[in-house]
Amino acid sequence: MFRNVTGRMTFPPGGGCPDMIDLRSDTVATPTEAMREAAAQAPVEHGEHGDDPAVAAVEATAADAVGMAAAVFVPSRTMANQIGAQVHTARGQSVLVERASHSYRRGSGGLAQHAGVQARAFDGGETGCPTAEQVAAEITAGGGHRPEVGLACVEIAHGANGGVVAPVDAFAAAVETAHEHDVPVHVDGTRVFSAATALGVDAATLLSPVDSVAVCLSTGLGAPMGAVLAGSESFVASARRVQEMYGGGMQQAGMVAAAGVCALENRHRVHEDHENARRLAEDLDALPGVTAAEPDTNIVLADTRDADVTAAAFLAGCEEEGVLGTADGEYTVRFCTHRDIGGADIAAVVSAAGEVV
């Protein structure tokens, strides 16, 4: 972003920050030319009437990708998660959520406001996924004195914990235990294709035990906006009614839905982001005073304590060198690779970090 002669903020044609390597999030990945072309050429029909071919296409493509019977296209993953919670639960129930998960820490209290449920937070440890024992204990705790658990929500991969992924068996065991107590399981699958890639399984296989999943089309995939909420035919029928209640119905939505179809194709290349993240972590770890563990997916956490540089100071220095990241604690820096970042960018980030420390 820069100022023109009038003093107004303007942006370069491709979007983003000019001459900056932006690793603040994988949500900053910009739409491809194919997405822009698809949006420009998309037929404009009425999404709420169910006759927009691009909306139908993104719903069908997403449902197939995650192994669900149906899906509904909505403006954001936050809305997708909120709709999922409301469909699965009754007012006055509680929802099991990990204490560092997006559904618990973000969304401006939407679980309480929209679904009328109470969040019951658990500690998912490094992976953010509850153990089978935790699930059983939380569901049965308190008897009649605590709200009945109506839903378990699991985030995969866990963004706040550095994109970590729980082992397939541990994830499946938690889901199975919830089902044994007649509690459905919803997955915040913002980075589900990254999780599946890291685990070496197909996303549909990974998600086969769960009841519903929300998939963000912009995070790492590059769509300008949008998400899908997928599940059974009856679940999605109910979700469409709640979507209308939230004001999430869209009329000429084909332009953004067409870009979403293209974005879903990018799920086949997320391994490139993982490779870049591993290279970045390895090279940062080689710098004096910097510690960076090998990431599961595309999020790198670097500790700068031994360099005696706070995360804020480290990032300020990196920004002067043309690199953007975020702080995840007093001495923890977070870098997130995505489809706009290549090998030359990784080398530049490491060079900038070296100058700072």
Rank of each mutant, 00 (worst) to 15 (best):
V5Q: 15
V5N: 15
T6W: 10
G7D: 07
M20Q: 14
S25D: 09
A34Q: 03
A38N: 10
V44A: 13
E45F: 14
H46M: 15
G50R: 04
V55Y: 09
T61Q: 10
G67C: 01
A69I: 01
V74R: 08
M79V: 05
M79Y: 08
A80K: 02
N81L: 11
I83W: 10
A85V: 14
Q86T: 08
H88D: 09
T89W: 01
R91P: 14
R106T: 02
S108A: 12
A112K: 13
V117L: 07
A119P: 09
E126C: 00
E126S: 12
G128W: 12
P130Y: 00
E133S: 11
V135N: 11
A137K: 08
T140C: 08
E148K: 15
G150R: 00
L151P: 07
C153K: 00
V154R: 07
H158S: 09
H158A: 03
H158K: 11
A160W: 08
G162S: 11
V164C: 12
P167V: 09
D169F: 12
A173C: 06
E176G: 14
D188Y: 08
G189H: 04
S194F: 15
V201K: 02
A203R: 02
L206N: 02
S212A: 13
V213R: 07
C216W: 00
A223R: 07
P224G: 02
V236N: 01
A237T: 11
R240I: 13
V242I: 14
G248E: 06
M250N: 11
A253K: 09
G254A: 11
G254K: 11
M255E: 13
V256N: 11
A258S: 03
A259K: 07
G260V: 07
E275G: 02
A277W: 00
R278D: 10
L284G: 03
V290R: 00
T291M: 09
P295L: 05
T297Y: 01
V300S: 03
V300G: 03
L301C: 08
L301V: 05
D306K: 10
D308F: 04
T310K: 00
A313D: 15
A313P: 01
E319F: 10
E320K: 13
F335Y: 12
T337N: 07
A344K: 09
A347P: 10
A352H: 05
V357E: 09
